[in-house]
Design a protein around this nucleic acid. Structure first.
Lengths: 191, 191
DNA sequence: TATTTATAAGTGAGCAATCACTCAATTTCA
DNA sequence: TGAAATTGAGTGATTGCTCACTTATAAATA
């Protein structure tokens, strides 16, 4: 790794850690620079602004995750297998870089509106899979967005509570449970 | 309503709306005062600081919701009935004052650590109900925190996506589905 | 190879703007 | 008239960001 790339990476990691511990608004450029062992001015050699640095970090994870989820579910045929592939992929992403994952999780509401239209999107991947399965008659037809939200919530809320420290350990340890639970949500019978 | 009480209520509502639209950190005291048709100094007759105003709003909803959920589930005997009571109560709270609800939802991570120990807590209510049901053999024994998170996620993620505008309409319209889905999550069979 | 030149990377004092909060003066109203 | 409520210009502290300058690295030249 070149010197410049190393500095940029250090800045990103320092910012990420602080953004999660406090928040983007409450983290100062001075703090980021200190944590990266660099002068404040150096930040602006690599990023046009603090906000852009925050957005860059978010978008990279957001789009990377979306693509990974898309590829993970593709080989599977039936909905049940697709769900398990998606859940496993998601949990592995979370466990691999928990700080980046937590940052993405806690800052969706501030950045989601800035995601370019048509860009890869984790939610759309899940939504499309569910929509397909409804058309194929694998699960009852319902409001797709509602059902997708509930199914996603099974995993995402667990992840959120891990961020809050309500429980510990790898998310990946519970892939089977998450997949079973998400499937159960999607398969709820109409009455 | 007295004049002073009216001013305080207007300030709270103005702050709430702005906190949801932007965020606490990005909302200025000047904006709050303007939105409440009041001078900036007036804020400090009713609140010691902007942060305390933000915390007051959060805690009032947090504890009110916790008590309401606790009372809602008490009369019910079986887990299935308790779940439905909790879900219905939660959705009604959300629909009754959506702005306050959205504020609570989006700012959990900043305020949850400041909740006084032993104070009424929505999550604890759900956790206890699930824990009881496990002891009674109504559902399989599992990591209570994990299972509670997933069950809660079924409803909370749907609420979150409504905040993001991914779908519209009252949450209460889907109480039956949420309750069925949460139940399905809790009842997932061990293998 | 040794020396000069060019470029990239890094610095930190300082600036303009903004913010939460204060308080002396003014208005409201019983 | 007097206490309570309200006002908004003012204050000190903080912030994101700039920029003239230094240092490190690489390229070119003799």
């Amino acid at each position: 790794m070149g010197k410049a790339e190393d500095t940029k990476a250090r800045l990103e990691r320092a910012a990420l850690t602080l953004f999660v511990a406090r928040s983007v608004a409450e983290t100062t450029t001075k703090e980021i620079a200190m944590a990266a062992s660099v002068a404040e001015g150096t930040i602006y050699r690599y990023f046009p602004s603090k906000e852009q640095l925050a957005l860059d970090l978010f978008l990279r994870h957001h789009q990377g995750l979306a693509e990974a989820l898309g590829e993970a579910q593709r080989p599977a045929k039936a909905l049940r297998a697709k769900i398990e592939a998606i859940v496993r992929c998601y949990c592995e992403w979370a466990d691999r870089d928990w700080t980046l994952f937590a940052y993405h999780l806690l800052n969706q509401h501030s950045f989601l509106i800035q995601v370019p239209d048509g860009a890869a999107n984790p939610v759309t991947v899940v939504r499309d899979v569910i929509s397909q399965a409804m058309k194929a008659g694998e699960i009852p037809r319902r409001n797709v967005d509602l059902v997708a939200a509930s199914a996603i919530g099974v995993v995402m809320q667990a992840a959120t509570y891990k961020v809050y420290g309500r429980f510990t350990g790898d998310l990946s340890d519970h892939v089977r449970f998450f997949a079973d639970a998400a499937w159960a949500v999607l398969a709820v019978k109409e009455k």
